[in-house]
């Protein structure tokens, strides 16, 4: 019985809700919501058409009439995944690449510059 109470107390301790003064967060509530949502989705899915046929022309890949490549060649490489994003922000990346020279002198230079900024803002102003 004592053990049972101890376990119950531990659970009470563990299951406290995190409050942030303006909101709260309890992962267990969230998890149960996810489980319920999954059950609803699953039940809706089970209403689906059961006469779907797997082995006919429907399932063939269609690439605007182009021939289909080997499966190995169809993988989109990592550097092409966010191509549009990196292309638009090319000017930012050019700037950043100029900053990351890989030269250790520049690293120390940034240290000196930051120290100077801190000195101006904290040492002189206040």
């Amino acid at each position: 019985m004592l053990l049972f109470i101890a376990i119950l107390d531990t659970f009470k301790l563990l299951l406290k809700t995190l409050s942030t003064n303006s909101g709260f967060w309890n992962p267990l509530v969230w998890c149960s919501v996810i489980v319920i949502a999954f059950l609803i989705v699953y039940s809706i899915r089970s209403f689906g058409n059961k006469e779907y046929k797997k082995d006919n022309e429907q399932v063939k890949t269609f690439l605007s009439g182009n021939p289909e490549y080997e499966k190995e060649q169809m993988h989109v490489k990592s550097s092409n995944v966010y191509w549009g994003f990196t292309e638009t922000l090319k000017w930012v990346y050019n700037l950043l690449n100029k900053m990351h020279t890989g030269n250790v002198s520049d690293y120390v230079l940034w240290f000196v510059v930051t120290m100077a900024i801190f000195f101006i803002l904290i040492g002189v102003m206040i």
């Binding site: 250790v104 520049d106 690293y107 940034w110 120290m115 801190f118």
Partner: peptide
């Protein structure tokens, strides 16, 4: 003391890897 504060904080921030002293 101000100078000591600045030296300590900037050196430790560099060792912690804060931009713009993160390149290492």
């Amino acid at each position: 003391d101000k100078i000591a504060l600045i030296l300590l904080i900037v050196a430790l921030l560099m060792k912690a890897g804060i931009v713009p002293m993160h390149m290492w």
